[in-house]
Design a protein around this nucleic acid. Structure first.
Lengths: 155, 155
DNA sequence: TATACTCTCATACTTTAGTACCAAAATTAC
DNA sequence: GTAATTTTGGTACTAAAGTATGAGAGTATA
């Protein structure tokens, strides 16, 4: 995908070449080229066109693209990095139901809410909650929530 | 800081040039150059040396360096920062005592505990707690804790 | 089969939490 | 100083939480 700019140099070069040929022709008419000087003449032509070639090359050549990677720090809020502390959870030795109840408890639900949610009676929830407190060594639901969050056994 | 490799091309070019001058000299001896053909001859020389110049330049010249900056994003984890959401706290319009009570509440204390802690009667705590619930639009201490932590108005 | 454990539910009771309403100091703002 | 707000405290009541105890049904497990 060469651009027009590249071709402009070629056209320019072509014009310069034509002008030089014309100049040469003119010189032939004006001055009699000495045979012995033909080598110098040819050499001058060669030198001139070589320099011209170099110049053309310098204009045409594609620039080399150097990729510079700049590291940019962006602070990202960790997307809820909650890692369940299974070790602590195992220590408490809660059964499935008790753990379920604990999770609902921590969400701010009442015993009645939890009972409705799990399709159980309030009595059952009370039993689970009491056992939960005993195992967690707490005396109220607020303490249970605080401790559970501290131990990272619930979100 | 040109390398030896760059000079090799110059040397090569010099050799080619010498060879061509020699070839030209030889041609002058072998064939009689027709005067009329001098233009074509000169043109050929010019064309050849131009191409040679371009080639040599392309080999020697340092390419133009265009720097392309690519930003690479690096994710940085912020180190566990609790930032009090003062905006949300102001919205709730809690007074000092209510906020104090809320903080103790969230630690799992009972009304009696809070009363003892602040040297107040349980009645006062109850009043504060009730007002607190009204302002926070909750119906129990567990909900208050959950909401307070969600809004980041307490640690 | 017996045992241990889980899960369920109930009754009776005590304690705590929460609501409603009132009111008196203390502090702050106009 | 007066008004508004905060802080305090009380009584009376209802609702919910929590304890203690017992017990039946189901499920693993030795």
């Amino acid at each position: 995908m060469k651009k027009l700019k590249d071709f402009q140099h070629v056209i320019l070069y072509g014009l310069v070449l034509a002008m030089l040929v014309f100049a040469l022709k003119w010189m032939q008419w004006k001055f009699v080229l000495v045979d012995n000087a033909i080598d110098i003449y040819i050499g001058a032509i060669a030198l001139f066109f070589t320099i011209l070639g170099v110049w053309v090359a310098s204009q045409i050549m594609r620039p080399k693209v150097e990729t510079l990677i700049v590291e940019k720090e962006i602070i990202v809020q960790p997307p809820e990095t909650f890692t369940l502390n299974t070790a602590e959870l195992q220590k408490l030795n809660l059964n499935n139901r008790e753990y379920e109840v604990l999770q609902l408890l921590a969400k701010g639900h009442s015993n009645a809410d939890i009972a409705a949610n799990l399709f159980l009676s309030v009595s059952t929830i009370k039993t689970h909650v009491s056992n939960l407190y005993f195992k967690m060594d707490v005396k109220s639901r607020t303490q249970a929530i605080t401790k559970a969050k501290l131990l990272k056994i619930i979100e």
